[in-house]
Design a protein around this nucleic acid. Structure first.
Lengths: 146, 146
DNA sequence: TTTCGTGCAAACCATTTGCAGCAGC
DNA sequence: GCTGCTGCAAATGGTTTGCACGAAA
């Protein structure tokens, strides 16, 4: 399956950089791998999901792991201007741009071939080594326009 | 001058929606109008600039004003994933996309005609009333690649 | 066995809020 | 004069950290 491939890649990345493969890290990656594409979790939400399992993970470790995995490029850190960050598995071959309703905070994922390339192209213009590019559209969804 | 135009537009917006034109709000708009294009301020930085003037503004009011002006569309709220937000005057006719170095946190502004349109186009696809579109590129600048 | 990672609780820091006094309109 | 705005200080909420113990390698 698609997502467990990225999960394994993340584990390899941990190992490669000398980090240990702990049960907590595995469980967290597992949860992200099982998450339907397009969904993302805040640290708090992830911690909640972890608590539902037998193998609970402390909030501190949850935060530490999210930060570590993001720095390794296994997770993508998303900021929707609502006070806390969200995270999702980084899958380069899938769309990950967002359109956010400032009324109800609902986010929808979309893809746009042009945008996928734009990041690399513009980065090159500035001699940047591009790690990630995010396009966010803020506005009101049909429901919230009334 | 370019920026004072946007400043006045913001004042009109305040008035139109029944908000009062206080000296604090005017001073804050003034500071943003005087800011070189491409620069942006955090609440803390703005508060510092305010303290340098005779007419100081409390931190609480600084935050309240930033929030109000953003909700009116006079300011743009920027999030560079470094723990606090930044704000800049919203000038629709100028570029406002950012490329951010995750090494030294330096941000560079750039424009791209395609991107400016892409937000509107994609928003329309989802029947969104687009308020703002932000494209962010994360990566390492030439200096930080070593 | 040697580090590194974890859990806990306390600490931090950006932002928000209750309330009394003050200032736009 | 009415009501919204401000300043102050205290509260909040997400995130980080110091430390002692437990677990990968």
């Amino acid at each position: 399956m698609q997502d467990s491939k990225d999960q394994n890649k993340a584990v390899d990345n941990l190992r490669k950089r000398g980090h240990r493969i702990t049960s907590q890290r595995q469980t967290i990656l597992e949860i992200f791998a099982e998450l339907p594409h397009g969904e993302h979790l805040s640290a708090e939400e992830l911690h909640e999901k972890l608590s539902e399992r037998e193998a609970a993970v402390s909030l501190a470790t949850t935060y530490r792991t999210l930060k570590l995995l993001s720095s390794l490029g296994a997770l993508r850190e998303l900021d929707f201007a609502e006070g806390h960050k969200h995270y999702e598995l980084k899958q380069d071959d899938l769309p990950h741009q967002h359109i956010i309703c400032t009324g109800c905070n609902q986010t929808t994922e979309f893809e746009d071939h042009f945008l996928e390339q734009a990041g690399q192209k513009i980065g090159a213009r500035y001699n940047f080594e591009v790690v990630d590019a995010q396009f966010k559209i803020f506005g009101l969804c049909p429901k919230c326009q009334k």
